[in-house]
Amino acid sequence: MWVVLFCTSALALLTKLGGHYVPASWLSNPRLQRINALIPIALLSALVVAEALTNKTKLVLDHRLAGVAVALVALMAKMPFPVVVLSAVFTSAFIYHWH
């Protein structure tokens, strides 16, 4: 836990500092730029799936998926972020206790 905390923090700061010291010309490779712009999208997508559908290395369908499905509906209805998260939380808790 502590290892994750401190390594993540150190690397996050090094990444940020790196950007401040590296000349902007390094940015010029358009292919690298495109890949960099897509990385957060790929990672966040994978994280949604990993957190909603998996338990260790198994795929499981449970209360979490129901919560995320409701969150998706809230996002499509253009609800603000706290409403999105809370709708998922309430749905999931309801189903967890109900079955």
Partner: peptide, 18 residues
């Protein structure tokens, strides 16, 4: 889990992704 917090995390990711 009993408070639905385990669904709040992927929902937050989905919001950030959206």
């Amino acid at each position: 889990a009993s408070w639905g917090l385990d669904a709040g995390v992927p929902a937050a990711f989905l919001g950030l992704l959206w």
